[in-house]
Design a protein around this nucleic acid. Sequence first.
DNA 1: TAGATTGTTAATCGATTAACAATC
DNA 2: TAGATTGTTAATCGATTAACAATC
Lengths: 223, 223
Amino acid sequence: MTSKYERANASDGQSRIPDIVIGRLPIYLRSLKILLSQGQTVTNSQELGDRLGISSAQIRKDLSHFGEFGKQGTGYDVAYLCKQLEKILQVDCIWPVVLVGAGNLGHALASYAGFENRGFRIVGVFDNQPDKIGTHVGSLQVEPLTQLPAHVARHHCRIAILAVPTKAAQNVANLLVEIGIKSILCYAPITLNLPEGIRVEYIDPVIHFQHMTYYLEKDCLKT
Amino acid sequence: MTSKYERANASDGQSRIPDIVIGRLPIYLRSLKILLSQGQTVTNSQELGDRLGISSAQIRKDLSHFGEFGKQGTGYDVAYLCKQLEKILQVDCIWPVVLVGAGNLGHALASYAGFENRGFRIVGVFDNQPDKIGTHVGSLQVEPLTQLPAHVARHHCRIAILAVPTKAAQNVANLLVEIGIKSILCYAPITLNLPEGIRVEYIDPVIHFQHMTYYLEKDCLKT
DNA sequence: TAGATTGTTAATCGATTAACAATC
DNA sequence: TAGATTGTTAATCGATTAACAATC
């Protein structure tokens, strides 16, 4: 099995593997882990594609960027493919994540039990509102933003969740970048302006709603 | 201004406007509304593109699917373009949304104040856990799932948020479809299997994290 | 008018799919 | 072996971009 796989990174000007392919791997992994938990040992590109609403050809093509993981006539060993995808995505470990913003959403995220077994652990919760500092969220205690730099350094955090009010988001994001955060998951409904090399992903439910309503018959409440 | 715009829908086999274009319109709208709130009256494709990390050509091309909204030499009237995008996306109104799942995430969503001025209102919260029924979330009271069908009918809901545990998600989704829901925003980390014509969008923070870690230098906690 | 920016075209670029030889 | 499914190629399909005439 010769791996044609070479990691794309900041110093590698020409990334060979399209980002859109990388974006599908976590979906494949999630589905495989469900099969695994159900005790299924073998699957194939057709079955996986049916489950995900993706063509089997696309799944095979995507995987082929990283090596050969299947057997002709048989398909894929579920556990083996899981392991390989985890290695490719670098989630065969636990990444420490800091959470900024201890509002309702921050609480929900800090209490969520589903991070750990998929490669992530929230190691600190930060907020600047005096009445929030010291309160408990999940198994953690809210700390003031002044503690953030030391915490990020101590835990070697590279990933942050931004769950602060919109008006504070850009400034907090700037701070995160200054102290060494490389990837931000932003829950504020805003597009951040940050230097090259910082990766930001966004979660804004309203963006999804507005995408949906384009296709709906209009019988909503008039306002 | 001749509109070449015709809505794509279930009965219209060949949709002329790519879904990927539709998906960018809410981003444009979000950015325009921020400009508007800052008192800016005019913008152009270059400025908007810079803010969003998108080429100006793409913005002009996307908009051109729906009509002509700008002036040569000047650009776009911010308020006018907002209004037009809201009309295209059908968010020049308030859509009633039901929320299923009153856990931490459900609470956060029900309490979120940012839906209303972007076209959405949560009109009901449902859960099956006896200890949750009757409790208050945001300005609403949790009701049992048995009340859901009547509620959806009464409010003409077409959109639902699914914020239940993973193991319950597929069954609740089936129920939602049965009672007339057409669009589901799913927070469970799973790909739902639903009939044609039902639109599902997914929010799973871990998918974003795993996408990010592919590009990170690996110095995470070994486990 | 001169300068700026649109809307649109055509070229380029990239992603998906169909098909099939290889092979388990 | 016969049947099934992979990995890969080449063709198709679709999306993005560069360039510019039109025009405010």
